[in-house]
Design a protein around this nucleic acid. Structure first.
Lengths: 122, 122
DNA sequence: ATATGTGCAAACTCTTTGCATGGAG
DNA sequence: CTCCATGCAAAGAGTTTGCACATAT
């Protein structure tokens, strides 16, 4: 049976107060403002559970390392700032993208990442 | 002064005989068919040099880990097979994509990845 | 009371670096 | 004959796992 701990509540709160995908390090940083003893291993274990529960989803942007965001968001893409490395949501999507695949390839998803500098870093 | 070694010739040949981005492990595997003693550290060092010379370019697909491809290819995107994990080129690109960024964000590039199963794995 | 969750540290994986030897020039 | 390049093994970064202790139920 799944327990409701301070650590899990803290991590849930972090995601409810942010509107962009977070890295494990970012989750740790924000989570520690609520539960200072929070450990990185707990962050990794907890996001895995939340992903399994479909409360979070994994975001795989170029550059390696997974980020996490609330799973209930409608289809969208991301902007990755080359300066601060933060990811932001991009709410529009070019339709028809999945038709670009070579003949005979079966497409079941796509990921579009824009690169540049965010408003703050410009 | 830069030297022309068996290892470097082998790695060059690998890229000239393939039309998709390769991971360091794939480069090692194919390179060893030409120079069996080839080491992984040499692969990493060599691709870094080729990237600096702009003969290769880095491809950062979702899922972590850099892949490499010939730098002189025209703008294109990639298809990543969920079954064999190989990347393939997608030669068309939806224009207009960079306009999707939020207001105030400065876009200087984009990466589009299609996911699914390649012809061989279907 | 009991079994799940946590924090720490060790293990792992992928990539990079140090160093002695090899080989291009 | 020089010095750059290589291969190995050790060191780093990021992530996962084992274990003893803490704590939700």
């Amino acid at each position: 049976m799944r327990r409701d701990t301070r650590q899990r509540r803290a991590i849930r709160r972090v995601f409810m107060n942010v509107d962009r995908p977070l890295t494990p390090e970012e989750i740790l940083e924000y989570g520690r403002r609520i539960v200072p003893s929070l450990g990185l291993a707990t962050v990794y274990r907890t996001v895995k559970i939340f992903v399994a529960e479909r409360w979070l989803s994994e975001v795989e942007l170029p550059g390696g390392g997974l980020r996490y965001e609330l799973a209930d968001r409608p289809h969208h893409h991301h902007f990755l700032c080359r300066s601060c490395d933060q990811a932001f949501d991009v709410h529009r999507c070019p339709d028809e993208v999945e038709r670009l695949a070579p003949r005979g390839f079966e497409v079941d998803g796509h990921e579009l990442t824009l690169f540049g500098r965010c408003v703050t870093c410009r």
